[in-house]
């Protein structure tokens, strides 16, 4: 396994005592896999992402990347981790520093990790990366606010992938986008997974998007993993009542699948 969370527990103090955000959560992501984590708001998925990216220290459990235990890792080990694990956010409008050009944004990782110290060669890498995600190299000098939501998400993906990470964590990366644009970004992530051998941990509330992108799925409810399995297993034969309720609630975009129209209830006034 490339990346593993084992028995992660995290609580937060509140006025009413400690609340448990994550309760014994374990999940693993194999190299080259796309793994989905489904959770509604309040399920603890944000805390999970923060723990997985070493932005928050869990109360208990282990985070292992490529065989190295990352809790209590050395500075150098964390630096290596930062180079190999990247993140794409939900909101492409607040995840890009508005005062940096596309070139600076996409090239920042190359600077930080000293991968490309010559400005000219860094520009070449950025241009190449932009082409890969479907933007034009001429866009380099522009600022993020002159791009549409879908283009911004491409910039964010280029920024994350420029340092060639092995694991990409996606936090609801398409939920802020228009439907017709959403499909472009999903397809791009799939292409990247195949072309670069990228490993993806895809966290989302949208079940359809997770089904489309991920081969293996975990379902998180109130800080606990309630179900996990292969895509078809979880979506076609869910065993946990929560997963069943979740799937039953998703509106299917096919009017032939809806129940007959309701009749007026006799008790109604």
């Amino acid at each position: 396994m490339l990346f593993e969370l084992a028995h992660i527990t995290k609580t937060f103090p509140t006025a009413q005592g400690r609340i448990t955000s994550l309760d014994d959560v374990s999940l693993s992501v194999g190299e080259g896999q796309a793994v989905g984590l489904v959770g509604e708001s309040g399920s603890g998925k944000t805390t999970l992402i923060r723990c997985a990216l070493l932005l928050t220290q869990p109360d208990g459990g282990a985070v292992t990347f490529d065989g190295t235990s990352m809790l209590g890792a050395t500075r150098e080990q964390v630096r290596q981790f930062r180079r190999q694990v990247q993140l794409v956010f939900q909101d492409p409008f607040s995840s890009l520093n508005p005062r940096m050009t596309v070139e600076e944004l996409v090239g920042e990782g190359l600077v930080i990790h000293g991968i490309e110290n010559s400005a000219a060669r860094r520009r070449d890498s950025v241009a190449e990366m932009l082409t890969v995600v479907g933007l034009r190299p001429d866009d380099m000098k522009r600022y993020p606010n002159s791009f549409s939501g879908g283009q911004r998400q491409r910039i964010a993906i280029a920024r994350a992938l420029a340092i060639r990470p092995r694991l990409l964590v996606c936090d609801e990366p398409v939920s802020a986008l228009d439907v017709s644009v959403q499909a472009q970004v999903i397809n791009l992530l799939r292409e990247m997974q195949k072309a670069l051998g990228l490993t993806i941990l895809f966290v989302a509330h949208d079940l359809a998007v997770v089904r489309h992108l991920c081969a293996h799925v975990y379902v998180l409810n109130r800080g606990k993993i309630v179900e996990s399995g292969s895509r078809d297993q979880v979506f076609d034969h869910p065993t946990h009542p929560y997963t069943q309720a979740l799937l039953a609630a998703v509106p299917i975009p096919d009017p032939r699948r809806r129940p007959p129209r309701r009749q007026p209830a006799p008790a109604a006034s």
Partner: peptide
Amino acid sequence: IPRVDRSQDELAAVPGS
């Protein structure tokens, strides 16, 4: 639109925004 009730290979995206 991705579908929750079946597995698809590729979504037919509309180009542009």
